[in-house]
Amino acid sequence: MTRIFAWIALIFGCVYFLLPLIGMAEFSLKMRRGVYSFDAYRKVFEDPTFWATFGYSLTLAAATIVVGVLLVVPTAYWVRLRLPKARPYIEFITLLPLVIPAIVVVFGYIRMFNTSSILPLTGSAIGTDFLLTMGYTTLALPYMYRSVDTGLRTIDVATLTEAAQTLGAGWITIMARIILPNVMIAVLSGAFLTLAIVMGEFTMAALLNRPAFGPYMQLLGANRAYEPPALAVIAFAITWGCMGLMQLVTRLAKHERAKA
């Protein structure tokens, strides 16, 4: 009896998620009258704005990942090593981006760093890009922190640090040669999540008026019929690709450990 219900629930879930996707994918293939074709996709790929915004978001994603790693790995490491009592508070802070809407954050940025402020970051493109990277880092913080902290749990941080210290290593050597390589898997999975978030982010990029992928998708969606679903399918493919890579990396890591 319970099995039947389980199956029904599963099938219902699949239909619920897949039907719109299938409908959308099917619609995106119908640009040419009467036959299925990839015309809509060709249109998208021929659009230079697609490549420009895609490249822009990809670059910002990379910057976000670098900033996130540099911020999160040493912090999570230090909290584990020296401030274990502060862990609940740090965790709470890293979860804040989940409850504070991006729009609030970005309005705050604009208020703080507008052209008439002491630090007029929004006055230049590069300054705004910097601001946007910081914003993205904030958005990705909960995922990055959790992932790295979980990675650190699998090693004996204190003993490894002390062993490295007795061998003459300073903090930079310890971070670069011992801690980071041991949490690399966790960092990578945090990085893929960050990539997925940044590629689809709309609010911050739109309000800071930067040519990112999210606003481009929105613009296209408001003005065309067949291209938006094609773009949605592409965006989906990117997200799922990231998820797949994350799984793959985790799987590889398990494989590493299974050899023991």
Binding site: I155, D156, T159, E162, A163, A164, Q165, T166, G170, N182
Partner: peptide, 20 residues
């Protein structure tokens, strides 16, 4: 003196080899 400047060798109770 800081630990990394003492030129001391130490062996721990827990297995403390660098896993990577």
């Amino acid at each position: 003196l800081k630990p990394n400047n003492r030129n001391i060798g130490m062996m721990f109770q827990a297995y403390a080899l660098f896993p990577n």
